[in-house]
């Protein structure tokens, strides 16, 4: 079953075509990596998929909802973690989780249990009463991820979630991603780390608004006769 279906999707801003006729599908429970150079149209495409931006034409269904007409429904059914701002720095750890849970209308009795579970899973018991601003970056990012999942969405979108994070926490973060996908939640992520691209079930490389390549990282490397992801990426994102 597909969580995301995109067909001939195009977005224009005036004369400029930011997303040019892209098509792909993402299966339920899949970890899907969305790669491309800066300015390739990734952010625009992601905004459409999150129900924040109306496409110009084409088709896009996210968790079964139409990106043209059901933006609100899409937003209710997905989680989103942005690159930088995703938590309130001057609120406590548990307050942040509670706030997002409340925004997403999680029932009070259920929410209390979930907050406890999240804090336990992240080993943040001793931080629960601390302000988020005082946490190390890696902890913040893990917390932001867990918070994006607090309403148990079917799909979670991550925009460069590990940018600048240390190599150990980066790996702990990916363990959280695997755990999430194993529960049949679809994970759609962007990254500039090529080793992380290899952790995805499938990747999509974008350049100049179009899809250049899509598939399983290992298969793509073999098919394109390159040794690593870096080479693969550079081959398709020439300047």
């Amino acid at each position: 079953m597909n969580s995301i279906v995109v067909k001939n999707l195009t977005k224009k801003f005036g004369d400029f075509t930011a997303v040019n006729n892209i098509s792909f599908e993402v299966k339920k429970g899949e970890v899907f990596g969305f790669l491309g150079a800066n300015g390739a149209g990734k952010t625009t495409a992601m905004k459409i998929l999150c129900g924040l931006l109306k496409p110009t034409f084409g088709e896009a269904y996210i968790a079964g909802y139409n990106a043209f007409t059901e933006g609100k429904k899409i937003r209710e059914n997905i989680g989103y973690m942005s690159q930088r701002f995703s938590l309130y720095e001057d609120m406590k750890v548990w307050e942040n989780i509670e706030l997002f849970g409340t925004i997403y209308k999680v029932k009070k009795s259920i929410l209390k249990e979930r907050i406890k579970r999240v804090i336990q899973r992240l080993n943040m018991q001793s931080y629960a009463d601390e302000l988020v601003g005082s946490l190390p970056l890696g902890q913040k990012q893990k917390l932001a991820f867990a918070t994006a999942l607090i309403h148990e969405p079917k799909i979670v979108f991550l925009d460069e979630p590990t940018s600048g994070v240390d190599p150990i926490v980066r790996r702990e973060f990916w363990e959280l991603i695997y755990e999430t996908a194993a529960k049949d939640v679809t994970v759609f992520t962007t990254t500039h780390y090529m080793d992380e691209a290899e952790y995805c079930n499938r990747i999509c490389i974008m350049a100049e608004g179009s899809v250049q390549l899509i598939g399983n990282p290992e298969e793509l490397k073999r098919r394109m006769r390159v040794n690593n992801m870096d080479e693969l990426f550079c081959k398709f994102v020439k300047r």
Partner: peptide, 11 residues
């Protein structure tokens, strides 16, 4: 090069 894609980083 923070937040810069691999191709631009090489350059």
């Amino acid at each position: 090069t923070t937040g810069v894609d691999p191709v631009s980083r090489r350059e």
